[in-house]
Amino acid sequence: MPDIHPSAVVADGARLGDGVVVGPFCVIGPEVEIGAGSSLKSHVVVEGRTSIGENAQIFPFASIGHQPQDLKFKGEKSRLVIGRNALIRENVTVNPGTEGGGLVTEIGDRCALLAGSHVAHDCRIGHDVILVNNVMVAGHVTIGDFVIMGGGSAAHQFVRIGAHAFVGGLTGLENDLIPYGLAMGDRASLAGLNIVGLRRRGFEREAIHALRHAFRDLFGEGAGTLKDRVDAAATAHGGSPLVDEVVAFLRAGGDRAVCTPRAGEPGSRG
């Protein structure tokens, strides 16, 4: 059975799993579902058609599932889905989807949204993602597994961030960041590969070397369009899973351009 503090307001219809703890002054709406073992510390508000997986830890003054900050939103029945083992710290805000983005915002398992971070409408966030304090993720952003966004960084609307990428603190990311990429700067440039993250997660040396060579072919000095370079990298280094993932990401394309090294900077600082 849930453990609900007397000062909390839990609307009829809300579904709380076994062992859920609802602390003082929390408010939970009628269409909310919270998985077993989760804990809402105090002053947490969860509204809308929101589903939160098992063992979530949600800290004071988080606002989860309130209507999106999109002036086109007209009250459509959109959803917010958060996976298992979420860590949601103080003052975090997460919004559901809109009609223009598929009516759902999704956050995977084991994600950490640290104090003051914001996830806007229609975002798709993978598993094991960390948003450090005051990260701002605009609408329609896609973030792959194991991405880390440093404190105070921001992602522009419709940006794609590939798996295992790292966005430095205070970085403004306006364009797509390749998987395993490292973005830095107030207006982000591609500063190399996230080699530290690759090593920490146990990727083999041979796979990292292949990725380094492909990165230089893609973003180093030389002639040819990005498409030409992608094709050349696929031919030269195809068969390496990491390289294949970067090639697939670039070929898929998106609404934004690709984050590249600044002019005059080497394309292989990873």
Rank of each mutant, 00 (worst) to 15 (best):
V45Y: 15
E204Q: 14
V22S: 07
R216D: 14
L16I: 00
K227N: 14
D186S: 13
I28E: 10
D145Q: 06
C123N: 04
V94W: 08
G152Y: 00
A56L: 12
P30H: 01
A11D: 06
A183Y: 05
I195P: 00
V159I: 03
V46N: 05
R124S: 07
G29E: 04
L131E: 08
G224N: 12
P179E: 15
P96S: 03
S51H: 13
D176S: 09
I125P: 11
G13H: 00
D145Y: 05
V147N: 05
A86V: 04
G29M: 03
L242Q: 14
V141D: 08
R212E: 11
G75R: 10
G97T: 00
T50Y: 12
G101P: 04
D186N: 13
M1W: 05
V21K: 15
D128Y: 13
L71Y: 06
M136S: 10
C111S: 04
V137L: 14
G35N: 04
I161R: 04
D176Y: 08
I4R: 03
H121I: 03
I208S: 00
G151S: 02
S240W: 10
A232Y: 06
G35Q: 01
S78E: 04
A183S: 11
G181N: 11
A154V: 02
S38G: 04
F215C: 10
L40E: 10
R199A: 12
S268L: 11
A155G: 05
G151T: 02
G19P: 10
V32W: 10
A120M: 13
G239K: 08
G101I: 01
S240P: 11
A11F: 01
L80W: 03
T105F: 13
T260F: 12
G144I: 02
G144W: 08
E265S: 15
N95L: 06
P261H: 08
R84S: 06
G172N: 09
S189E: 15
G126D: 11
H43S: 14
G224E: 13
E221L: 10
F146R: 03
L193H: 09
G238Q: 14
T50G: 13
E245Y: 03
G97W: 02
H213W: 04
F61N: 15
P30Y: 00
N194Q: 07
